[in-house]
Design a protein around this nucleic acid. Sequence first.
DNA 1: GGAACTGACGTTTTT
DNA 2: CGTCAGTTCC
Length: 852
Amino acid sequence: MTEPNKLPRQEPRHDLPDHQPMAGGIAARARAAATPPYLAGLNPEQREAVETLDGPVLVLAGAGTGKTRVLTSRIAHILSTGRARPQEILSVTFTNKAAREMKHRLGQMLGHAVEGMPWLGTFHSIGGRILRVHAELVQLKSNFTVLDVDDQIRLLKQLLQADGIDDKRWPARMLAGLIDGWKNRGLTPSQVPSGEAAVFGNGRGGKLYAAYQERLKTLNAADFGDLLLENIRLFRENPDVLRGYQNRFKFILVDEYQDTNVAQYLWLRLLSQMSTRGNDAAVTSPHRGEVDMRSKSGEGTPTDERSPYPLPDGEREQASPVATPEIRQKNICCVGDDDQSIYGWRGAEVDNILRFDHDFPGAKVIRLERNYRSTGHILAAASHLIAHNESRLGKTLRTEDVEGEKVTVTGAWDSEEEARAIGEEIEQLQRAGDKLNEVAILVRASFQMREFEDRFVTLGLPYRVIGGPRFYERAEIRDALAYLRVINSPADDLAFERIINVPKRGIGDATVQLLYDHARKQRMSLAAAARAIADTDELKPKPRGTLRGLMDSFDRWRVQSQAIPHTELAEIVLDESGYTEMWQKDRSADAAGRLENLKELVRSMEEFENLQGFLEHIALVMDRDGGPEEDAVSLMTLHSAKGLEFNNVFLPGWEEGLFPHQRALDEQGRAGLEEERRLAHVGITRARRRAKLYFATNRRIHGTWSTTVPSRFLDELPADNVEITESKGGSGWGGSGGYGASRFDNLEAFGSSYSTPGWQRAQANRSRGGFNEAGTPYGTDGGSRARRAPLTIEGELIAKSTGTTSDYSLGDRVFHQKFGYGRVVRIDGNKLSIAFDKAGEKKVVDSFVQRA
DNA sequence: GGAACTGACGTTTTT
DNA sequence: CGTCAGTTCC
């Protein structure tokens, strides 16, 4: 497993000599005659998916059916039958995590490291690699910078300003979103439909996109979308280059195919065609039929009108709906599950997987339907639910596991009670000996997490939040990287601008503006302008001196960078720039974590040969993950739960408007609803032994309490596999509603089942137009016991055991990793009530705070 | 350069 | 209602 917060190893270079001499065909075949170990234990479908090497293959792998196993076994099979050498296999995933997992498992399977699999990686890292080799063909240099979202937006802001566009009315963020969307769909500036380009900035959207692209070239930079889009352009404009890659890759494997966007599809399409000499068939566009699967329901929501593939002009097929047979498809194998496509809102096209056999004629479709994860009731519930979707290829998951416990549905009065009930159930599981690591709470929206965090802090129940900002998105990491970028590439204006006054050194907006003007006039980089200005008297002495000092520092660092190891350089830079000091002085709650992150950054640099190599990979390859494996409940969104599994899964918030989310319904109509339903399906199928669903009758939305209606998804569950239970949190919701068509779907039906004092009290509160937290003291406080396990968020400690018993007294000033500073206002055993300066009053177990 | 105020916003998130 | 970013004011 990866070490906590470690970067993955540097991707092996693709020009390594073959270190693994492949056996010739005969020997390999002889060896394959006996069942090789990697095939043993596969079920017939899995085996077929592994052994069908020729032609396009789509493996529809339902949740828990051994998807990764099939992929890795297939690679092992290709290698050991001698059909291809490691460097002839292109294997793409979406996330670094998935890529790492595959490398890891492949290594285990083959019994040695997979250094020889240079083309196993994410779409973006592979696209980026190819782009670096041929950078000059797309007007870049091979050391181009990969911009993160923040850089992107700052760049766009500059363009908007230069164009005199009010960025209140037309925010840069919005334009970034549009451009991203266009790139996801494989559209270069000239290919964006004019109507769409017009929606931004009074018709200037398209021009801005073009200007942005141009500016990127000047800066020798590419954004994430470019890594694919420019790759596609590279292939289209340079058939010989494309042919080289087509020849190289004998086999293509794609993971999570249901999440591919149009650009990724186009890229795969280009690479998967057999290279054809002397005719450009190989570089023509993909072939798409006219049938839109989504239209089959005849539902007329306007959102369904959007064309499934707005291909650029000249790319559209005239009449032939099917790919010309002369274009032979390579051995491409896509693995995915249409029922787990949950990234449509981000450009993923479920249609890619739904139309696979159309796009890749003659494709063999193999269904993996045997689930090795969940018990019978859970699987039945999930299957029944997802069967309500129309746009799906259809699979029937089955298990040979026991029936197990039924899926439970529990109603709670409000979200607070929901959290309390779940907290208690978790404690009960814990008492019964279950590991907290085997417990997950999966929420639809991250705001739901808060209630659980508060509750767990009170209970002293260790938890960790999965997701949130990635390592390289953190301000301190980007700042540090910016320094290194400027050293590496003095013309990196974006990086220079980022740190010119970080830490604060008295170079204000006025100075920066002056630099800008000068840079533009003289057509030079900002850093060059800074140097020039520092030699004139355009600036007051103070900023002038500071600026000169900064430039001198960069000169010095740049000289040093030639002589000393890059990790050492990084330490020197962080130290001499005053950056480390800035955080050391900072008294805020997360300063310590930031310093820790900086250390981790430096440590991670060791994995790379030099600064340049580090910078080239960092934007693409760096991610969170790992973290100490203390026993703790996992708290995350449904989206980030994909691919994970737990014995016990709690699914709160199953209410109309929240889940399915109103916005998905409003903006995407039926397609949106179906994606939400897939999300529900993903959620339930994460569970091995227990899946527990909850809904709250009242939830605070945007500050005001509103009454909610249980999710329609609850009604779509099969009665036989579901048990309706009473909330253990107190007032509870009686299960008297019974089964049938409207178990949950109308408020009266279950509202009437309330008869507890709690409900009445709340009812009274509601008639007053709302009620506060103190007004809803339902149930009892869960058994609170101090636990000594440290808490982590993404590997950062948020609470540490002090090892001492409660010896705080009233009025003590304390510090809490999550809530910051506060004062003890009440003591109840080992539980303290603390009035936090920022977070308000909270009950906290004493071991979670330290003296300030 | 930092505190204090104001206004907008309030799903999901990888690379 | 609460947060956060952006702005203003000292």
